[in-house]
Design a protein around this nucleic acid. Sequence first.
RNA 1: GGGAGCAUAGCUCAGCUGGUUCAGAGCACCUGCCUUACAAGCAGGGGGUCCGCGGUUCGAACCCGUGUGCUCCCA
Length: 878
Amino acid sequence: MELSKNFQHSDAEKKWYAHWNNSGYFTSKPDNRPPYTIVMPPPNVTGVLHMGHALNNSVQDILLRRAKMKGFNTLWVPGTDHASIATEAKVVAMLREKGIDKKKMPRDEFMKYAWEWKEKYGGIILKQLEKLGCSADWSRTTFTMDEGYYAAVIRVFVELHEKGLIYRGVKMINWDPKAKTALSDEEVVHKQANSKLYYVRYKVDSDTEEYLTVATSRPETIPGDTAVCVHPDDERYKHLVGKYVFVPLINRRVPIIVDDYIDLEFGTGALKVTPAHDINDYNLGLKHNLEVIDTLNDDGTLSEAAQLYVGMDRFVVRKKIVEDLRDAGLMVKEEDYVNQLGYSERTDAVIEPKLSMQWWCNMQEMAKPALDIVMKDEVEFHPAKFKNTYRHWMGNIKDWCISRQLWWGQRIPAWYDSKGGLYVAKTNEEAHAKYKAAKPELAATEPVLRQDDDVLDTWFSSWLWPMQVFNWNEAPDNEELKYYYPTSTLVTAPEIIFFWVARMIMAGDTFMDKKPFDKVYFTGIVRDKQGRKMSKSLGNSPDLLQMIEDSGADAVRFSVMISSPAGNDLLFDEGHLEQGSFFCNKMWNAMKLLKGWESRCATGMDDSKHLFAINWMEARLAQVSAEVEDLMKDFRLSEALKTIYSLIWNDFCSWYLEWVKPGMEQPISATVYEHAISLYERLLQLLHPYMPFVTEEIYHVLRDREEGDDLIVRQLPDYGTPDAAILKEGTMLQELITAVRDTRNKNQLKPKDTIKLWVQTADKDFYTKVQDILSRQVNAEEIGFVTEAVSGAISIVVETDKLYIEAPEATIDTEAQKAQMQKDIDYLKGFLVSVDKKLGNERFMANAKPHVIEAEEKKKSDALAKIKTLEESLAVLG
RNA sequence: GGGAGCAUAGCUCAGCUGGUUCAGAGCACCUGCCUUACAAGCAGGGGGUCCGCGGUUCGAACCCGUGUGCUCCCA
């Protein structure tokens, strides 16, 4: 077979993904092996693969694939989230393009369109995850609005309502005027905004022409003012307390009240109070029994209650009212002002605080045990710093606004009769039965109840995810739930710690009395080179599918993993993508080199000169395997990948392969060849979880494999403790080679110029062992031992061995050699002084641990020996 | 306003409980090589007052305090 020049990722990706999937490697059924389970954070059905998904899902796939290789029964459950606000917005927009208005459509019809949309576009992101190589069990794909899932959500609502934890009430909520729905606190994003602070005069109700000036950033809410408030200690306004002012333009007479909530320094120290449109004003209103005048409609226009500007948008009104106040001579001044504004996470509309009747879930009771679970590490957070964030939120948890004024989602299972009676039940029938039992007379004349129009917050379904993907609602005792739950590791972004992680822990504890997962690994946030968060709105997220197509899934996985330490943000750098694809190419070429030797295999050859290389590489593999195991335990995935990368590129390709490489056109011992293949396939195995396609492809090109012999399922062996002696000798050999090559370079020797190498050493055995390698690596035609300096040769020192390089082509610069040696001696002497200082320090000798003292003593003897060697060499040079 | 975190080579980051010759990697840079696996490569090299200041310690990139700059989360 003719091997291509470079690794061809597209073909390999298609071929191997289909093969793995068709071989059933992604599916799982309970058996007697220990399970390793991950539930995928369900992306929004509206979602398109972005960098965050790539990072998150690469991490999950790596953990899964590695666990599979270690004998676990692995399961990765995929799915999508119905994402009520985002999806409904998409469907409404799609309808608008067709000239259809959602408002003129019955609910059923809208839902039909929404489901059609979901069926058509809803699976795109999962297909994209396949391209990335995700080894999820697609037969278990779950959607948060599946029939069974829907029922679970309804059941949870009803049960919590029965416990009194879910209730209906009027409170201040975050209103999204664009989506026309309430939002939870978590769905509001606070951003800095450049605003203006307007100083407006309010006429005091007295005989004099006195005015009170207030500062406000929201003059459009003036029609909703029902008081002006000042601080009780404020001398400026003491005489006005108890009096009234007239609200500008509409001339409503409102009281001047006092409260120590007021900040004396801010503005004029006088605050206009608009209880309907500000949470703080609302609380003031409750305290002082103020009237609440809601001057806004659901779409952000002013309502009849405002009296003025009715039907105009709030931001238009802001401009208009400023002009009108100026004209009326009531505007004192305007100044620039930077403040924090709340925006809707989904629609980016400026949030309007608004009093509204909504459904609420009391979180206090559920939060307490959920807090303990994390504080006691029953659920481990990685990195642990997020425990603080979690504790802070759980300690100050507020009731959760769970109703949304949308249609796409689980409809709230509450029904009303005409007299305001409320019936919460799992089904329409049950609700009506309750109604008939409670109010038989009314039910006789008005038999049909009206169901609540609202749906539940998306997160009110997501929090059941780890339970319900295993069918908790229908069969709480089922085998799968018992086997796979609690799941092993949740991989997610820190930004949804409250939205989702905390609530899953609460749900698991409340409904199953079990935590949902053992560990949570928080990935970083993906940022662009300027440090900005990658987001659709900024348009700074690269096109992942294009990247996969151009560079390959393995290179993409490499690039996102190589620089993403746990919990630290990842600055995405295109350079890493290049590094990843170069790495694929390097591995491909190493394979080509090995395959090229296949036909040159010969039996009965003397292998002894290759033993050193083989044993050393085996030891390195064992050493790195152990390192990777430790790193993976701590979720240090990027470190693990770096370590393996370096093992393959440097140790295997740059050293080992060169060491066992046969001469031009020379045969290679069959056993040496076999060993090289065996080593390479085990290296590929170590790398496979990170870069699955290229490793599987090369694994299969290396040898013909039997059916079922695939890297993805090959089990990782335990290589035991590496041979420390040979590792040390390997390092020495590398130092020797580098030192001689450096000398060759410095003396302008061409690669083809041969040298003779004379060694003065106490360890001849070592040189005998590596003589063959050394001579080839430094292009020495002869290596021999001497007991004294060789005249006319270049002299260097490695460790405590003296080397003499005889090179006829070189112009020998004795002064340069001497200078170099003198420099080394000076350095070592300086070093020796500091070591001596330590060893001569009584307090150091008394306090330092024995092994530290031992190390210092060894440093001293090594340095002394090396100085001696260098001085001898220097003396010979004259 | 409350909380979390960061500051190490030109860039992006490692450096795990303070002690293996006052720091490692990749990219970038310099020198030399088209050596039939790989120029998407090979060999070699240079480059750091570990943010400033103070402290603890026999010993600090690492611990403590403080200042400066930056990021994120929550209100």
